[in-house]
């Protein structure tokens, strides 16, 4: 089957088997290996990407289901030139919101639409939003701090 999809702003057309998972397509066909696979049954959230701006688990979708949709992966978050980070990525570095970093791309992609819809969440809301992403390293505490950092930085007028 032929798949036409826009990923991080670039258009791709590929022949794919119907059973090819979106996560495998992104990682192994397009080489966008920033999207990680942790469980392949939709629990850990490491493979989360944006489909038309909303967070989805790319291990629970077939690539062909993304036909004529727009995908954003972690590689599409920061401007592609230089070492500039997306404000959320910068906040994660500042607050030590990652350790091994394997779950981090999925966490970021979960939080981007969450923060778009909830620009000033309290801790409980942040934890609820994060509850579909498993992290074994951080205990989540500094991820929560990082999210608050990102919100505070965003609301600072002279930023």
């Amino acid at each position: 089957m032929t798949l036409g999809v826009t990923v991080n702003g670039a258009r791709y057309e590929r022949a794919v088997e119907p059973r090819l998972l979106l996560s495998d397509f992104l990682r192994h066909e397009l080489g966008l290996t920033g999207t990680h696979v942790g469980c392949e049954h939709g629990v850990c959230g490491a493979c989360t990407v944006l489909l038309d701006g909303e967070a989805v688990r790319s291990c629970l979708m077939f690539a062909i289901q993304a036909d004529e949709h727009e995908i954003t992966t972690v590689e599409g978050l920061a401007p592609s030139s230089g070492d500039t980070l997306h404000p959320l990525q910068a906040a994660f570095r500042e607050a030590h919101g990652l350790q091994c970093g394997f779950c981090t791309p999925g966490v970021l992609m979960t939080l981007v639409p969450f923060l778009r819809d909830h620009p000033d969440p309290d801790e409980r809301a942040i934890r609820e939003a994060l509850s579909g992403n498993l992290c074994r390293c951080t205990g989540y505490q500094n991820i929560v701090v990082a999210v608050r950092h990102a919100c505070d930085a965003h609301s600072t007028p002279d930023r």
Partner: peptide
């Protein structure tokens, strides 16, 4: 702050 983070955060 960690030297390794930029690589991990950008995939």
């Amino acid at each position: 702050r960690r030297n390794e983070d930029a690589r991990l955060l950008t995939g």
